[in-house]
Design a binder for these strands. Structure first.
Length: 153
DNA sequence: GCCAACGTTGGC
DNA sequence: GCCAACGTTGGC
């Protein structure tokens, strides 16, 4: 069992959008970074914990708790020439990009990025490091415990 | 909208 | 295999 932080732009898929989806579940399509892909494809297991993070928006931060509900499979958007995530170098025989499905556990009161930065317990958290842009990062169990037991409301 | 930081591409 | 140029991310 591992823990992850996954960034989504709320203008694209917000926590409320996730809550409104069938089964409150969504395919994590559109990841086009190899490190992030590898996390999904090689490491994520069903039931892994996920912090659903709102990025590139007015109030960035952790907006909800989710979990991995379906193991990685080829991302459908890479094959669709009309999709903005289309990848001409990918084919169904040799897919490049994979995604898991993520299911909502619960929406929480937003834990803002600036609040997260205020806790020494989270000083080493991957997402908070300078220059980090990775949309999927592992979360240490200790960080997960601290956030879920101390900060989640 | 700006821009620092980072990842990818492609010529050599 | 190097690295300049370019594109993207994402906080502010």
């Amino acid at each position: 069992m591992r823990y992850w932080l996954m960034k989504s732009e709320p203008a694209d898929v917000s926590i409320d959008d996730l809550a409104a989806m069938p089964k409150q579940s969504v395919a994590w399509y559109g990841v086009r970074n190899y490190q992030a892909r590898n996390f999904m494809r090689n490491q994520m297991q069903i039931g892994d914990g996920v912090f659903f993070y709102h990025s590139n928006c007015k109030e960035p931060g952790i907006a909800g708790i989710a979990k991995v509900s379906v193991l990685a499979y080829p991302d459908a958007t890479q094959f669709d020439a009309k999709n903005k995530y289309f990848d001409p170098k990918a084919s169904s025989e040799t897919p490049r990009w994979f995604n898991v499905d993520v299911q909502l556990v619960k929406k929480i009161e937003l834990i803002s990025l600036s609040a997260l930065r205020g806790y020494p317990e989270l000083a080493n958290m991957r997402t908070l490091q300078k220059g980090n842009r990775l949309s999927i990062t592992p979360v240490d169990p200790a960080e997960w415990d601290f956030i879920t037991t101390q900060l989640v409301k």
